[in-house]
């Protein structure tokens, strides 16, 4: 996968955020400090190159809260490899964000 070598800093940050369980677009924005105009196009790019994949949360959870279902992102195997590769270049990346999210608990919402 030579896609790894093209990983930009913001893409690496986003991968790291997802790896740290910040799986929703807005949570990634909050933790990375990147604007929405950067995060979403990057997510599309990462999904297209197969580094992340997206799923919809369970309808039931959303319906109870009277809102549409949210989409969350997960790293693929390739994505995990790419992140490991990127961590060698951006050494401080894994210290950038806390492992467990503060405000959201995606584990309860996931299906």
């Amino acid at each position: 996968m030579d896609k790894k070598s093209y990983l930009s800093y913001s893409e690496a940050v986003i991968l790291q955020a997802i790896a740290s369980s910040y799986k929703y677009g807005f949570d990634i924005m909050d933790i990375s400090g990147l604007p929405s105009g950067t995060v979403y196009p990057a997510l599309r790019r990462l999904e297209e190159t197969g580094l992340v994949e997206s799923r919809w949360e369970k309808e039931g959870v959303a319906q109870r809260a009277q809102r549409p279902a949210r989409k969350y992102y997960e790293l693929t195997r390739v994505g995990k490899e790419a992140l490991a590769e990127a961590l060698k270049r951006y050494r401080l990346l894994d210290r950038l964000m806390p492992r467990v999210p503060r405000s959201v608990k995606p584990s309860t919402e996931r299906g």
Partner: peptide
């Protein structure tokens, strides 16, 4: 509102 404006870049990227 500011965040939703970012959707424009997202849409452009698509």
């Amino acid at each position: 509102v500011r965040r939703s404006l970012g959707a424009f870049w997202d849409a452009l990227w698509l």
